[in-house]
Design a protein around this nucleic acid. Structure first.
Lengths: 163, 163
DNA sequence: CAAATAGTTTAGCCTTGGCTAACAATTATT
DNA sequence: AATAATTGTTAGCCAAGGCTAAACTATTTG
């Protein structure tokens, strides 16, 4: 295993500009960073579905596969398959050809996702990001923001947006 | 297509708490949000590899598959396969059993990724996020932050960290 | 310099999350 | 009520990104 923690003597030679970039983190920490991202990756889509289903129920009274496919920009077949998975995971209940419901657990997940999404979105707006951009960024960022950062974002919102 | 833009009359009934959540965005915009995330998804891993390879070369003088596997927390076989992909994409050059080099294009991508990563990381620290957490969050967030937001983050860093 | 160790690649497997096409059920229209 | 239109499901395809095991190459060391 060649990854001891010494910098190569010539490392400086290829530093290209002013912002030199931080040192590499220790291997263990670095690995954990990537692992965290990979894990987030696995739950991301699930959370997006659950969150969207929750939103549809909240705003429209029901969630149908066609609406999901439509809003996600994905085929109905894909949604159908995904719903089966959500079912197996105990997040939604569905009867064939009927609209969807979230289980207790699904509702909890939707609620958490929605709150997180809202905080990130409001934070970005409070920072001064244009609404459309903020929505796009929030959609991607929300799954990668830790609770710690979320709390700080909430504090920022309270300070700035209010007043 | 049932997704016209009227809110269901009973929508308010299931609103659970203070933070009521924003209205659903128009379908077209919503779709674009998800599309953007899916696209980011595809390039994320590629960028992470290229960025890491760049970092290894910069800090250690060379990038070897074993180091990448080690830092990513992934098997060497996985890295090997990925390197073939990077090769096909014209981002790295590699001779069997030898260490890796970035192509022009690869270097450009690494540079852009690194800058973006740095901005996000420094921004989070400037916000007050703990270093370890900031690193984890940055790793996940960097691929989802638009140029607009990045610029604003840079402004925030300049205002706060300086002084 | 031969053997052991470390690093790399290949083969083959699995799961996810897309897709299209064909079919089935429900809902709307006439 | 029969037919048309919409919606949902299934089957079967594909690529990506993991994995393990086995084979091969390079390097280090006795």
């Amino acid at each position: 295993m060649s990854d001891n923690d010494q910098s190569h003597p010539n490392a400086a030679a290829s530093m290209s500009n002013s912002n030199c970039g931080d040192a590499l983190p220790p291997v263990g920490q670095h690995t954990r960073q990537y692992e965290t991202v990979r894990n987030a990756h696995e739950t991301e889509l699930i959370e997006d579905y659950v969150e969207l289903i929750g939103d549809l129920i909240r705003h429209r009274g029901e969630a149908r596969a066609a609406d999901i496919a439509n809003r996600m920009g994905v085929s109905q077949a894909t949604v159908s398959k995904m719903i089966r998975r959500l079912n197996e995971l105990g997040l939604v209940t569905s009867r064939p050809y009927r609209s969807l419901f979230l289980t207790e657990e699904g509702q909890k997940m939707a609620e958490i996702s929605r709150k997180r999404h809202d905080i990130v979105l409001h934070f970005l707006r409070a920072l001064g990001v244009n609404d459309t951009t903020a929505r796009i960024d929030a959609e991607g960022m929300e799954h990668h923001v830790s609770d710690e950062t979320l709390t700080i974002m909430q504090g920022f919102i309270d300070q700035h947006a209010k007043r």
